[in-house]
Simulated assay, not measured.
Amino acid sequence: MRIPCPHCGERDIQEFSCLGDATRRRPDPEAGEAAFADYVYLRDNPAGRHRELWYHAGGCRAWLVVTRDTKSHAIEAVAPAREAARTLAESGS
């Protein structure tokens, strides 16, 4: 699989590290230990379109949000994580 880095161009997946789901939100500290444990350990494994957080360790060292199909690995979009977070905050999601 090749990921089109917005800073470096298209690169091999070996240059990247995947952190996981880019849509998860850290729970409020007052939500309790159980909520935080769920946040840290429980993960969905969706089939289809999914947004993931990737780190370009072998290149520009930027954090990216990659939208891809988990069945075909086809990449739909790649955006710097800061821009993706700003867009998400502005949409109220």
Score class of each variant (00 low, 15 high):
residue 60 C to E: 06
residue 59 G to Q: 14
residue 62 A to F: 00
residue 39 Y to A: 06
residue 30 E to L: 11
residue 55 Y to S: 13
residue 39 Y to S: 01
residue 41 Y to N: 07
residue 44 D to N: 14
residue 52 E to F: 13
residue 38 D to E: 09
residue 57 A to T: 15
residue 58 G to M: 05
residue 49 R to H: 06
residue 52 E to S: 15
residue 51 R to H: 13
residue 50 H to M: 09
residue 37 A to S: 02
residue 57 A to N: 13
residue 37 A to K: 06
residue 63 W to V: 01
residue 34 A to L: 02
residue 37 A to W: 06
residue 53 L to E: 02
residue 46 P to L: 05
residue 55 Y to C: 11
residue 38 D to K: 01
residue 35 A to N: 04
residue 36 F to E: 11
residue 53 L to D: 02
residue 50 H to L: 09
residue 66 V to H: 05
residue 54 W to H: 03
residue 51 R to W: 11
residue 44 D to E: 13
residue 36 F to L: 10
residue 37 A to D: 04
residue 65 V to T: 12
residue 46 P to E: 08
residue 64 L to I: 14
residue 38 D to L: 08
residue 39 Y to W: 03
residue 31 A to W: 00
residue 63 W to M: 14
residue 60 C to L: 10
residue 54 W to P: 00
residue 49 R to Q: 14
residue 40 V to A: 00
residue 63 W to A: 14
residue 46 P to W: 09
residue 33 E to N: 07
residue 55 Y to P: 13
residue 58 G to H: 07
residue 52 E to V: 08
residue 36 F to G: 00
residue 35 A to K: 06
residue 63 W to G: 11
residue 38 D to P: 00
residue 44 D to T: 08
residue 43 R to H: 14
residue 47 A to V: 11
residue 28 D to W: 11
residue 54 W to C: 01
residue 40 V to R: 02
residue 28 D to R: 09
residue 43 R to K: 13
residue 66 V to M: 00
residue 47 A to I: 13
residue 59 G to S: 14
residue 66 V to T: 02
residue 62 A to K: 08
residue 65 V to C: 10
residue 46 P to R: 03
residue 60 C to N: 07
residue 57 A to L: 13
residue 44 D to K: 11
residue 28 D to G: 05
residue 61 R to M: 11
residue 31 A to F: 02
residue 56 H to C: 15
residue 65 V to I: 12
residue 44 D to W: 12
residue 45 N to T: 11
residue 30 E to G: 12
residue 48 G to V: 07
residue 41 Y to H: 05
residue 63 W to S: 11
residue 56 H to T: 15
residue 42 L to R: 09
residue 64 L to V: 13
residue 52 E to H: 06
residue 59 G to N: 12
residue 48 G to K: 05
residue 46 P to A: 04
residue 31 A to V: 00
residue 63 W to L: 14
residue 39 Y to D: 03
residue 31 A to Y: 03
residue 33 E to R: 11
residue 59 G to I: 15
residue 62 A to T: 08
residue 65 V to P: 05
residue 55 Y to I: 15
residue 43 R to F: 05
residue 30 E to V: 03
residue 35 A to H: 00
residue 31 A to R: 04
residue 42 L to T: 05
residue 30 E to T: 09
residue 40 V to S: 01
residue 50 H to K: 15
residue 33 E to M: 06
residue 42 L to M: 11
residue 34 A to V: 01
residue 50 H to G: 09
residue 57 A to C: 12
residue 47 A to N: 10
residue 39 Y to L: 03
residue 37 A to L: 08
residue 65 V to E: 04
residue 61 R to H: 12
residue 34 A to C: 02
residue 31 A to N: 05
residue 42 L to P: 01
residue 48 G to L: 12
residue 36 F to H: 07
residue 60 C to H: 10
residue 46 P to C: 14
residue 58 G to C: 10
residue 29 P to A: 09
residue 60 C to A: 08
residue 57 A to W: 12
residue 39 Y to R: 00
residue 34 A to Y: 01
residue 38 D to M: 05
residue 61 R to F: 06
residue 33 E to T: 06
residue 66 V to G: 02
residue 52 E to T: 14
residue 49 R to L: 15
residue 46 P to H: 10
residue 42 L to G: 01
residue 44 D to S: 12
residue 28 D to I: 10
residue 32 G to Y: 01
residue 53 L to A: 08
residue 52 E to D: 12
residue 33 E to W: 10
